[in-house]
Design a protein around this nucleic acid. Structure first.
Lengths: 352, 352
DNA sequence: TTGTATGCGTTATCAT
DNA sequence: ATGATAACGCATACAA
């Protein structure tokens, strides 16, 4: 900028004005533009931000960007953020909790105008990092009851209940559960939800039918293999869709038919559920909706820091597809046709 | 900082030194630390960066973070970047080319220490934005021959050839191809590769066996449905794994057995290929390796801007799995058992 | 060790 | 409309 001004024979202030499109005589504008083009001037956004106190950037921190549920959340957030002229940056923390607080410490120190964080584990360290953040932060997920932080959550306990209710209603009784780690917030909530739901239906809890692994495909598959080795479920609830896909693979390899032998219900209702064959029933936790709301809360708070902390809740919603259909929708190819040809096994799901 | 210094009764310079851990008498250190804690001081990273000329941030811009191939690439990059004490930020451009250049213009203006970009469409506008970038940029993917930009690529033309060779070698002749948009760099390369490979084997090209859509699941499924409506392939090559998964779904819905009736080969060799049942053969384009190399090139250039532009190439590599196995590995369940039980249909792939 | 003063690249304020 | 100058918040060369 200094160089540009000198080359154009004007003051640095005039150069800045022209480059920002405010003021300047036609002659000055021409000279500055020319000089800028000649030296290939590009503005230093850092310096500009130091002055303007904003960067036009918003960050999203999630556990695992390989999980499609976060992709859907990200897309929803992106849409809102873009409408405010800002750009969205995503960071995958990989579940390393130190990484997450480190990111908060770095980004939140004004590299971005605001952050959306979706932690699956929440420590005190976390909470202080969140509350001490110099820029607005919105949390997607359960948070300590009285944390003064904008927060949008769902009720995954109830989500699991929807799945169990559906399976019981369609005649399943030996319902297994493949969960994520119990020391995570969603893992603990879903475990509680499963136990409560069985209890409500008067079905005795069988620990043999419960398995725990990571919230990932490989873990879901391995956990299901362990479960099948010692028990004989007629239905499986999975704590997310990645696990459900792993479970499906394990079931098919073991020669179980889905849904005839074992009904399968995932959670998050991601694109993955619709990609499988048969398509998977899944409990939607409104990820896109939660993302959208979180982004809106964030933009509001960026505009007005004095807002009181808000908390929003998005209800879960079961989507029934072929993997848990009550009527058997997947006749064996060898057995010939069955049912009207217009209803193929991968037809769209039905919201319950 | 001003406040902290005043409260501690020292100069702003001394406060800065203490807070950075350089110098300071025990007494000063104590006072400053105390004051900082009392006022809840958090450093302004933007101001610090203006001084230090670095942010400790590196960005990755890709088309679609929902594509697992980019997730794998991201993970590889993340590992390298983290080892340099920096943090990785990801941006999904959604294929909007204006978005991509806008991101370049914003982030590259020193919000980050460097960028890795993997564009699927390359325009002149792009190229100038890339070459004019004030911070180092590394491109993953094909680029104009003489662009003076660090670049790591693969040979997807050859990748398609590997798939075709394999299918021909296992007796397939009516080989279909489901590709992405031809106006993208990878789409065009794969189309050329497919035509050349058929030609090399003396198989006449049948346009009925070629379909084009987006590089996504839904498009792959729809394209395959169109293809099956007018032709009867005994094998299908897909331009990426998302398309291949869509194709698999379409095939199964249409009652085709995979691989008995139709052999299926995807591309990118993502986790998705291993998640399917049957597991999908896929041409690895070394995404993780390309990501790793790109990150290393970037770090080197950040350390030394005077380096000459470099170009690296990662060879493709076919991984054969159940979806295109020569011997029929998936006996119909109704037909009873076949083959040793230790070899189940989803066994690990074999590198060719 | 400590404080003073300057610079990092821009934008904004204020005279002119 | 233009130019000099003071911030923005921090780090550092230099002198004390």
């Amino acid at each position: 900028m200094h160089t540009v001004a000198a080359r154009a024979g004007v003051s640095i202030a005039s150069a800045s004005r022209v480059l920002n499109g405010v003021g300047g005589s036609p002659e000055t504008i021409r000279k500055v533009r020319e000089a800028a083009a000649e030296v290939g001037y590009v503005p230093n956004a850092i310096a500009r931000s130091l002055q303007s106190q904003r960067t036009g950037l918003v960050a999203l921190a999630v556990e695992d960007i390989g999980n499609p549920v976060y992709v859907e959340m990200m897309r929803a957030i992106e849409a809102v953020v873009a409408s405010s002229g800002r750009q969205l940056l995503v960071h995958a923390t990989g579940g390393r909790i130190d990484n997450e607080t480190a990111l908060l410490r770095r980004l939140a120190n004004r590299y971005v105008d605001g952050m959306i964080v979706s932690p699956i584990r929440v420590t005190d360290d976390h909470l202080t990092a969140l509350t001490d953040s110099p820029v607005p932060v919105v949390v997607v997920g359960q948070l300590g009851a009285d944390a003064p932080i904008d927060n949008v959550r769902t009720d995954s306990r109830h989500g699991v209940a929807l799945a169990v209710d559906h399976l019981v209603a369609t005649g399943r009784r030996r319902i297994g559960f493949v969960n994520g780690p119990l020391d995570t917030v969603p893992g603990a909530a879903r475990d509680a939800g499963f136990r409560a739901a069985l209890d409500r239906h008067g079905i005795p809890l069988d620990d043999e039918l419960i398995e725990v692994g990571d919230f990932q495909y490989a873990a879901g598959r391995a956990a299901t293999e362990r479960l099948l080795a010692r028990a004989d479920p007629d239905a499986l609830v999975c704590a997310n869709d990645l696990i459900a896909v792993g479970a499906l693979h394990a079931l098919l390899v073991a020669g179980r038919r889905v849904p005839q032998d074992v009904a399968l219900v995932g959670m998050d209702d991601t694109e993955l559920a619709r990609m499988m064959f048969p398509q998977l029933s899944s409990v939607s936790l409104g990820s896109a909706e939660r993302g959208r709301r979180a982004a809106e809360l964030l933009l509001q708070r960026i505009a007005d820091a004095a807002l009181p902390p808000r908390r929003e809740q998005v209800p879960p919603n079961l989507v029934v597809r072929a993997s848990s259909a009550a009527t058997l929708p997947t006749p064996r190819p060898a057995a010939g046709s069955a049912g009207p040809p217009t209803t193929h096994p991968s037809s769209e799901g039905v919201t319950a």
